[in-house]
Amino acid sequence: MIRLLAFLTLLPGLALAQEDTPATSQPALAGPLEEEMPGELIIATREAPPFAFRGPDGAWTGISIDLLRVMADELDFTYALEEAELAEMIAGVGDGRYDASIAALSITPEREEVVDFTHPFYSTGLGIAVDTGSSGGWFRVLRNIFTWQFGAVLAGLSAVLLLAGAAIWAFERRGNNEEFRREPVRGLGDGFWWAAVTMTTVGYGDKSPRTLGGRIVGLIWMFTAMIIVASFTAAIAAALTVGQLGGRVADASDLASSRVGVVEGSSGAEEMQVRRISTRPYPSTGDGLAALANGELDAFVHDRPLLQFLMEEDFQGRVRVLPEPIGRQDYGIALPEGSELREPMNRALLAYVRSEDWGDVVARYIGSDPR
Protein backbone atom coordinates (compact mmCIF):
# COMPACT_ATOMS: atom_id res chain seq x y z
CA MET A 1 0.00 0.00 0.00
CA ILE A 2 2.81 2.41 0.89
CA ARG A 3 4.58 1.65 -2.44
CA LEU A 4 1.35 2.31 -4.37
CA LEU A 5 0.92 5.72 -2.69
CA ALA A 6 4.55 6.61 -3.50
CA PHE A 7 4.08 5.67 -7.16
CA LEU A 8 0.91 7.77 -7.43
CA THR A 9 2.78 10.70 -5.90
CA LEU A 10 5.60 10.45 -8.49
CA LEU A 11 3.29 9.89 -11.49
CA PRO A 12 2.74 13.61 -12.42
CA GLY A 13 6.48 14.23 -12.37
CA LEU A 14 7.10 11.25 -14.65
CA ALA A 15 4.51 12.52 -17.13
CA LEU A 16 6.12 15.98 -17.14
CA ALA A 17 9.55 14.47 -17.75
CA GLN A 18 8.17 12.54 -20.73
CA GLU A 19 6.72 15.74 -22.18
CA ASP A 20 10.11 17.50 -21.86
CA THR A 21 11.99 14.68 -23.63
CA PRO A 22 12.54 15.45 -27.36
CA ALA A 23 10.74 13.08 -29.68
CA THR A 24 12.94 10.75 -31.66
CA SER A 25 10.42 10.57 -34.50
CA GLN A 26 8.72 13.33 -36.44
CA PRO A 27 8.45 16.48 -34.22
CA ALA A 28 5.23 18.44 -34.28
CA LEU A 29 5.34 21.14 -36.94
CA ALA A 30 3.98 24.66 -36.66
CA GLY A 31 0.35 23.90 -37.49
CA PRO A 32 -1.92 25.96 -39.78
CA LEU A 33 -1.42 29.69 -40.15
CA GLU A 34 -3.44 31.84 -37.75
CA GLU A 35 -4.68 33.93 -40.69
CA GLU A 36 -5.60 32.35 -44.01
CA MET A 37 -3.37 33.49 -46.87
CA PRO A 38 -5.25 35.50 -49.53
CA GLY A 39 -5.15 33.24 -52.56
CA GLU A 40 -2.38 31.15 -54.02
CA LEU A 41 1.24 32.05 -53.25
CA ILE A 42 3.54 32.59 -56.24
CA ILE A 43 6.91 31.05 -55.41
CA ALA A 44 9.93 31.40 -57.70
CA THR A 45 12.40 28.59 -58.27
CA ARG A 46 15.04 27.54 -60.77
CA GLU A 47 16.93 24.48 -61.96
CA ALA A 48 19.40 23.71 -59.18
CA PRO A 49 19.57 19.92 -58.86
CA PRO A 50 19.34 18.14 -56.47
CA PHE A 51 17.49 20.92 -54.63
CA ALA A 52 15.09 21.95 -57.40
CA PHE A 53 14.70 20.44 -60.86
CA ARG A 54 12.10 19.06 -63.22
CA GLY A 55 11.56 15.30 -63.13
CA PRO A 56 10.86 13.08 -66.16
CA ASP A 57 7.18 14.07 -66.02
CA GLY A 58 8.02 17.78 -66.05
CA ALA A 59 6.94 18.33 -62.44
CA TRP A 60 9.25 20.12 -60.01
CA THR A 61 11.04 17.94 -57.50
CA GLY A 62 14.15 18.02 -55.31
CA ILE A 63 15.17 18.58 -51.70
CA SER A 64 13.89 22.16 -51.50
CA ILE A 65 10.64 21.34 -53.33
CA ASP A 66 9.91 18.45 -50.96
CA LEU A 67 10.54 20.78 -48.01
CA LEU A 68 8.15 23.38 -49.47
CA ARG A 69 5.48 20.74 -50.03
CA VAL A 70 5.64 19.57 -46.42
CA MET A 71 5.46 23.12 -45.06
CA ALA A 72 2.50 23.94 -47.32
CA ASP A 73 0.63 20.91 -46.01
CA GLU A 74 1.40 21.74 -42.38
CA LEU A 75 0.77 25.49 -42.63
CA ASP A 76 -2.25 24.99 -44.90
CA PHE A 77 -1.42 27.29 -47.81
CA THR A 78 -1.45 26.72 -51.56
CA TYR A 79 1.24 27.80 -53.98
CA ALA A 80 2.27 27.82 -57.62
CA LEU A 81 5.89 27.51 -58.75
CA GLU A 82 7.24 29.91 -61.36
CA GLU A 83 10.67 29.44 -62.93
CA ALA A 84 12.98 32.47 -62.82
CA GLU A 85 16.65 33.36 -63.19
CA LEU A 86 18.74 33.58 -60.03
CA ALA A 87 18.87 37.38 -59.96
CA GLU A 88 15.11 37.61 -60.57
CA MET A 89 14.39 35.23 -57.70
CA ILE A 90 15.86 37.77 -55.29
CA ALA A 91 14.71 40.94 -57.03
CA GLY A 92 11.20 39.56 -57.60
CA VAL A 93 10.71 38.79 -53.91
CA GLY A 94 12.09 42.20 -53.00
CA ASP A 95 9.67 44.12 -55.24
CA GLY A 96 6.63 41.96 -54.49
CA ARG A 97 6.30 39.97 -57.71
CA TYR A 98 6.92 36.73 -55.81
CA ASP A 99 5.74 35.71 -52.36
CA ALA A 100 8.86 33.60 -51.84
CA SER A 101 11.81 32.02 -53.65
CA ILE A 102 13.25 28.59 -53.02
CA ALA A 103 15.92 26.38 -54.61
CA ALA A 104 19.54 26.44 -53.48
CA LEU A 105 19.59 30.08 -52.36
CA SER A 106 22.64 30.98 -50.30
CA ILE A 107 22.06 33.45 -47.50
CA THR A 108 24.46 36.36 -48.12
CA PRO A 109 24.71 39.91 -46.72
CA GLU A 110 23.99 41.38 -50.17
CA ARG A 111 20.79 39.37 -50.60
CA GLU A 112 19.72 40.04 -47.02
CA GLU A 113 19.60 43.75 -47.88
CA VAL A 114 16.83 43.03 -50.40
CA VAL A 115 14.85 40.16 -48.82
CA ASP A 116 14.41 38.32 -45.54
CA PHE A 117 15.49 34.69 -45.22
CA THR A 118 14.16 31.86 -43.13
CA HIS A 119 16.53 29.92 -40.94
CA PRO A 120 18.98 27.79 -42.98
CA PHE A 121 17.73 24.32 -43.87
CA TYR A 122 21.00 23.07 -45.41
CA SER A 123 24.68 23.99 -44.95
CA THR A 124 27.43 23.21 -47.40
CA GLY A 125 30.37 24.93 -49.12
CA LEU A 126 31.56 25.94 -52.55
CA GLY A 127 33.19 23.22 -54.63
CA ILE A 128 35.87 23.40 -57.30
CA ALA A 129 35.22 21.23 -60.34
CA VAL A 130 38.13 20.34 -62.64
CA ASP A 131 38.33 18.02 -65.59
CA THR A 132 39.67 14.53 -65.16
CA GLY A 133 42.33 14.90 -67.87
CA SER A 134 40.50 12.55 -70.21
CA SER A 135 40.17 15.36 -72.73
CA GLY A 136 43.05 17.35 -74.12
CA GLY A 137 45.51 14.46 -74.37
CA TRP A 138 49.11 15.33 -75.15
CA PHE A 139 48.11 18.88 -75.99
CA ARG A 140 47.38 19.42 -72.28
CA VAL A 141 50.71 17.85 -71.33
CA LEU A 142 52.62 20.07 -73.76
CA ARG A 143 50.73 23.12 -72.52
CA ASN A 144 51.85 22.39 -68.97
CA ILE A 145 55.49 22.02 -70.09
CA PHE A 146 55.87 24.90 -72.52
CA THR A 147 55.02 27.77 -70.23
CA TRP A 148 57.01 30.94 -69.59
CA GLN A 149 58.46 29.27 -66.49
CA PHE A 150 59.72 26.41 -68.63
CA GLY A 151 61.21 28.91 -71.10
CA ALA A 152 62.98 30.66 -68.25
CA VAL A 153 64.53 27.35 -67.16
CA LEU A 154 65.73 26.69 -70.72
CA ALA A 155 67.26 30.17 -70.92
CA GLY A 156 69.05 29.66 -67.61
CA LEU A 157 70.34 26.26 -68.71
CA SER A 158 71.67 27.73 -71.95
CA ALA A 159 73.50 30.42 -69.99
CA VAL A 160 75.15 27.78 -67.79
CA LEU A 161 76.19 25.76 -70.88
CA LEU A 162 77.69 28.86 -72.43
CA LEU A 163 79.60 29.63 -69.22
CA ALA A 164 81.03 26.09 -69.06
CA GLY A 165 81.88 26.26 -72.77
CA ALA A 166 83.68 29.58 -72.31
CA ALA A 167 85.74 28.15 -69.42
CA ILE A 168 86.88 25.11 -71.44
CA TRP A 169 87.61 27.27 -74.50
CA ALA A 170 89.76 29.63 -72.41
CA PHE A 171 92.15 26.74 -71.62
CA GLU A 172 91.95 24.78 -74.89
CA ARG A 173 92.07 27.56 -77.51
CA ARG A 174 95.88 27.65 -77.50
CA GLY A 175 96.92 24.05 -76.91
CA ASN A 176 94.02 22.39 -78.74
CA ASN A 177 92.89 24.78 -81.41
CA GLU A 178 92.00 21.95 -83.77
CA GLU A 179 88.94 21.14 -81.65
CA PHE A 180 88.45 24.54 -79.98
CA ARG A 181 89.16 27.21 -82.56
CA ARG A 182 90.77 30.49 -81.60
CA GLU A 183 88.08 32.73 -83.12
CA PRO A 184 85.80 33.78 -80.22
CA VAL A 185 82.48 33.09 -81.97
CA ARG A 186 83.48 29.68 -83.33
CA GLY A 187 85.46 28.80 -80.23
CA LEU A 188 82.56 29.59 -77.90
CA GLY A 189 80.32 27.52 -80.18
CA ASP A 190 82.75 24.60 -79.86
CA GLY A 191 82.77 25.01 -76.08
CA PHE A 192 78.95 25.18 -75.92
CA TRP A 193 78.70 21.96 -77.97
CA TRP A 194 81.21 20.16 -75.72
CA ALA A 195 79.34 21.27 -72.56
CA ALA A 196 76.00 20.07 -73.98
CA VAL A 197 77.16 16.58 -75.07
CA THR A 198 79.09 16.14 -71.80
CA MET A 199 76.08 17.12 -69.69
CA THR A 200 73.82 14.64 -71.51
CA THR A 201 76.54 11.93 -71.22
CA VAL A 202 76.36 11.41 -74.98
CA GLY A 203 80.06 12.14 -75.41
CA TYR A 204 80.56 11.99 -79.21
CA GLY A 205 84.33 12.17 -78.71
CA ASP A 206 84.78 14.84 -81.37
CA LYS A 207 85.94 17.33 -78.71
CA SER A 208 87.81 16.58 -75.49
CA PRO A 209 90.07 18.66 -73.23
CA ARG A 210 93.84 18.02 -73.48
CA THR A 211 95.31 20.69 -71.25
CA LEU A 212 95.50 20.35 -67.47
CA GLY A 213 93.26 23.35 -66.91
CA GLY A 214 90.76 22.05 -69.47
CA ARG A 215 90.61 18.64 -67.81
CA ILE A 216 90.01 20.19 -64.39
CA VAL A 217 87.17 22.25 -65.87
CA GLY A 218 85.83 19.09 -67.56
CA LEU A 219 85.87 17.12 -64.29
CA ILE A 220 84.04 19.87 -62.40
CA TRP A 221 81.49 20.20 -65.20
CA MET A 222 80.76 16.45 -65.26
CA PHE A 223 79.71 16.42 -61.60
CA THR A 224 77.82 19.70 -61.94
CA ALA A 225 76.01 18.42 -65.03
CA MET A 226 74.77 15.34 -63.16
CA ILE A 227 72.97 17.57 -60.65
CA ILE A 228 71.52 19.79 -63.40
CA VAL A 229 70.22 16.82 -65.41
CA ALA A 230 68.60 15.26 -62.32
CA SER A 231 66.82 18.52 -61.45
CA PHE A 232 65.72 19.11 -65.03
CA THR A 233 64.36 15.57 -65.34
CA ALA A 234 62.39 15.98 -62.11
CA ALA A 235 60.84 19.23 -63.39
CA ILE A 236 59.73 17.61 -66.65
CA ALA A 237 58.32 14.59 -64.80
CA ALA A 238 56.31 16.87 -62.52
CA ALA A 239 54.90 18.77 -65.50
CA LEU A 240 53.92 15.52 -67.21
CA THR A 241 52.27 14.21 -64.05
CA VAL A 242 50.22 17.39 -63.57
CA GLY A 243 49.07 17.22 -67.18
CA GLN A 244 48.05 13.58 -66.96
CA LEU A 245 46.19 14.08 -63.66
CA GLY A 246 43.89 16.49 -65.43
CA GLY A 247 44.79 20.10 -64.95
CA ARG A 248 46.64 22.87 -63.28
CA VAL A 249 44.20 23.38 -60.38
CA ALA A 250 44.90 21.31 -57.26
CA ASP A 251 43.26 23.61 -54.67
CA ALA A 252 41.86 27.11 -54.20
CA SER A 253 45.34 28.69 -54.27
CA ASP A 254 45.66 27.77 -57.99
CA LEU A 255 42.52 29.64 -59.06
CA ALA A 256 44.19 33.05 -59.38
CA SER A 257 46.32 31.89 -62.31
CA SER A 258 43.62 29.76 -63.98
CA ARG A 259 40.59 30.12 -66.23
CA VAL A 260 37.70 29.99 -63.75
CA GLY A 261 34.00 29.76 -64.53
CA VAL A 262 31.04 30.63 -62.26
CA VAL A 263 27.25 30.93 -62.53
CA GLU A 264 26.40 34.57 -63.12
CA GLY A 265 25.13 36.26 -59.95
CA SER A 266 25.77 33.21 -57.76
CA SER A 267 27.46 33.07 -54.37
CA GLY A 268 30.41 31.44 -56.15
CA ALA A 269 30.76 34.53 -58.33
CA GLU A 270 30.62 36.75 -55.23
CA GLU A 271 33.28 34.66 -53.48
CA MET A 272 35.62 34.86 -56.46
CA GLN A 273 35.08 38.63 -56.63
CA VAL A 274 36.04 38.95 -52.96
CA ARG A 275 39.20 36.94 -53.68
CA ARG A 276 39.88 39.17 -56.73
CA ILE A 277 39.91 36.19 -59.09
CA SER A 278 38.79 36.91 -62.64
CA THR A 279 35.98 34.66 -63.84
CA ARG A 280 33.87 33.78 -66.86
CA PRO A 281 30.10 33.88 -66.17
CA TYR A 282 27.73 31.13 -67.36
CA PRO A 283 23.93 31.05 -67.20
CA SER A 284 23.73 27.65 -65.48
CA THR A 285 25.80 25.00 -63.72
CA GLY A 286 25.38 22.62 -66.65
CA ASP A 287 26.73 25.19 -69.12
CA GLY A 288 29.76 25.81 -66.92
CA LEU A 289 30.55 22.12 -66.49
CA ALA A 290 30.18 21.56 -70.24
CA ALA A 291 32.71 24.35 -70.88
CA LEU A 292 35.04 22.74 -68.35
CA ALA A 293 34.72 19.30 -69.96
CA ASN A 294 35.42 20.83 -73.40
CA GLY A 295 38.68 22.40 -72.22
CA GLU A 296 37.47 26.01 -72.21
CA LEU A 297 38.06 26.32 -68.44
CA ASP A 298 40.57 25.08 -65.90
CA ALA A 299 38.04 25.11 -63.04
CA PHE A 300 34.39 25.80 -62.33
CA VAL A 301 33.33 27.09 -58.89
CA HIS A 302 29.79 26.56 -57.60
CA ASP A 303 27.84 25.06 -54.72
CA ARG A 304 29.38 21.70 -53.91
CA PRO A 305 26.24 19.48 -53.79
CA LEU A 306 25.04 20.87 -57.13
CA LEU A 307 28.40 20.11 -58.73
CA GLN A 308 28.45 16.58 -57.31
CA PHE A 309 24.90 15.83 -58.46
CA LEU A 310 25.46 16.98 -62.04
CA MET A 311 28.86 15.30 -62.15
CA GLU A 312 27.24 11.95 -61.36
CA GLU A 313 24.25 12.50 -63.64
CA ASP A 314 25.69 14.10 -66.78
CA PHE A 315 29.50 14.35 -66.58
CA GLN A 316 30.59 10.99 -65.21
CA GLY A 317 34.30 10.45 -65.93
CA ARG A 318 34.68 13.90 -67.52
CA VAL A 319 34.91 16.17 -64.47
CA ARG A 320 35.65 15.70 -60.78
CA VAL A 321 35.15 17.83 -57.67
CA LEU A 322 38.18 18.56 -55.51
CA PRO A 323 37.85 17.22 -51.95
CA GLU A 324 38.34 20.52 -50.08
CA PRO A 325 35.35 22.94 -50.11
CA ILE A 326 35.64 26.72 -50.04
CA GLY A 327 33.95 28.55 -47.20
CA ARG A 328 30.38 27.87 -46.07
CA GLN A 329 27.02 28.27 -47.79
CA ASP A 330 23.70 28.24 -45.91
CA TYR A 331 20.51 27.69 -47.93
CA GLY A 332 17.29 29.40 -46.91
CA ILE A 333 13.92 30.48 -48.30
CA ALA A 334 13.74 34.09 -49.48
CA LEU A 335 10.70 36.07 -48.27
CA PRO A 336 9.64 39.72 -48.55
CA GLU A 337 10.82 41.89 -45.70
CA GLY A 338 8.34 41.72 -42.84
CA SER A 339 6.50 38.72 -44.31
CA GLU A 340 3.94 37.06 -42.02
CA LEU A 341 5.15 33.71 -43.36
CA ARG A 342 8.62 33.99 -41.89
CA GLU A 343 7.88 33.03 -38.27
CA PRO A 344 5.57 30.04 -38.97
CA MET A 345 7.89 28.84 -41.72
CA ASN A 346 10.84 29.01 -39.35
CA ARG A 347 8.99 26.92 -36.76
CA ALA A 348 7.92 24.33 -39.33
CA LEU A 349 11.36 24.26 -40.94
CA LEU A 350 13.25 23.77 -37.67
CA ALA A 351 10.94 20.97 -36.64
CA TYR A 352 11.13 19.20 -40.01
CA VAL A 353 14.93 19.26 -40.37
CA ARG A 354 15.18 17.51 -36.97
CA SER A 355 13.06 14.62 -38.17
CA GLU A 356 14.00 11.28 -39.67
CA ASP A 357 11.86 12.19 -42.68
CA TRP A 358 14.27 15.00 -43.55
CA GLY A 359 17.23 12.65 -43.37
CA ASP A 360 15.42 10.31 -45.76
CA VAL A 361 14.77 13.15 -48.21
CA VAL A 362 18.41 14.24 -48.26
CA ALA A 363 19.62 10.64 -48.60
CA ARG A 364 17.24 10.01 -51.51
CA TYR A 365 18.68 12.85 -53.58
CA ILE A 366 22.30 13.05 -52.42
CA GLY A 367 23.02 9.65 -50.90
CA SER A 368 24.03 10.91 -47.46
CA ASP A 369 23.94 14.12 -45.49
CA PRO A 370 27.52 15.46 -45.54
CA ARG A 371 27.01 17.93 -42.69
Rank of each mutant, 00 (worst) to 15 (best):
Ala299Gly: 06
Phe223Asp: 07
Tyr282Pro: 03
Leu307Ala: 03
Ala234His: 13
Gly295Lys: 07
Arg275Lys: 13
Asn294Phe: 03
Ile277Lys: 13
Ala250Asp: 12
Gly247Thr: 09
Leu310Tyr: 06
Gly218Phe: 08
Gln273Gly: 10
Arg215Asp: 07
Ser208Tyr: 12
Ala250Cys: 02
Ala269Leu: 01
Leu306His: 01
Thr233Leu: 10
Gly261Tyr: 04
Leu289His: 12
Ala235Gly: 09
Leu292Asp: 06
Arg304Thr: 04
Ile227Trp: 11
Gln244Arg: 13
Met311Arg: 15
Val274Leu: 05
Arg280Ser: 12
Ile220Ala: 10
Gly288Pro: 03
Asp303Lys: 00
Gly214Ile: 13
Trp221Leu: 07
Tyr282Trp: 02
Arg210Asp: 02
Ile227Gln: 07
Pro209Phe: 00
Gly214Tyr: 02
Thr233Lys: 07
Ser284Ile: 04
Ala225Thr: 15
Asp206Val: 12
Gly295Leu: 05
Ser257Phe: 03
Gly268Tyr: 06
Ile220Gln: 05
Pro209Glu: 05
Gly317Thr: 09
Ser253Ala: 14
Ser266Trp: 01
Met311Trp: 00
Leu289Val: 11
Ala235Trp: 08
Ile277Ala: 06
Gly265Ser: 01
Gln316Pro: 03
Arg215Gln: 14
Gly261Trp: 00
Ile236Arg: 08
Asp287Pro: 03
Ala291Val: 03
Ile220Asn: 03
Gly218Leu: 04
Thr224Ser: 13
Ala225Pro: 09
Ser257Asp: 15
Thr233Asn: 09
Gly214Cys: 09
Leu307Lys: 01
Ile236Thr: 14
Ser231Trp: 07
Val242Gln: 09
Gly286Pro: 04
Val229Ala: 09
Ala250Tyr: 04
Gly243Trp: 04
Ser253His: 13
Val242Trp: 00
Thr241Phe: 11
Ser231Met: 09
Ser266Phe: 02
Glu313His: 13
Ala299Trp: 11
Asp303Glu: 15
Ala239Leu: 15
Ser208Ile: 03
Leu245Gln: 15
Pro283Tyr: 01
Phe232Arg: 00
Leu240Glu: 03
Ser253Leu: 05
Arg318Tyr: 07
Ala290Glu: 13
Glu270Lys: 02
Arg318Gln: 14
Gly246Pro: 05
Arg280His: 11
Val301Met: 07
Trp221Lys: 04
Val229Arg: 15
Ile236Glu: 03
Arg259Gln: 11
Pro209Ser: 04
Met311Ile: 02
Glu264Leu: 14
Arg304Tyr: 02
Ile236His: 10
Gly213Leu: 11
Ala290Phe: 00
Asp298Ile: 12
Leu306Val: 13
Arg259Trp: 02
Pro283Val: 08
Val217Glu: 12
Leu212Thr: 14
Ser284Pro: 03
Arg276His: 08
Gly286His: 08
Leu307Asn: 04
Gly218Ser: 12
Val262Arg: 00
Arg276Ile: 06
Gln273Arg: 14
Ile216Val: 13
Gly213Ser: 06
Leu289Lys: 12
Leu219Ile: 14
Val260Trp: 06
Ser253Met: 05
Gly243Met: 05
Phe315Ala: 04
Leu310Arg: 15
Gly261Leu: 01
Ala225Glu: 12
Arg280Asp: 06
Tyr282Lys: 02
Ser231Tyr: 07
Gly213His: 05
Leu306Ala: 10
Gly295Asn: 08
Thr279Asn: 02
Glu264Thr: 14
Leu307Arg: 02
Ile277Cys: 08
Leu297Ala: 09
Phe309Trp: 15
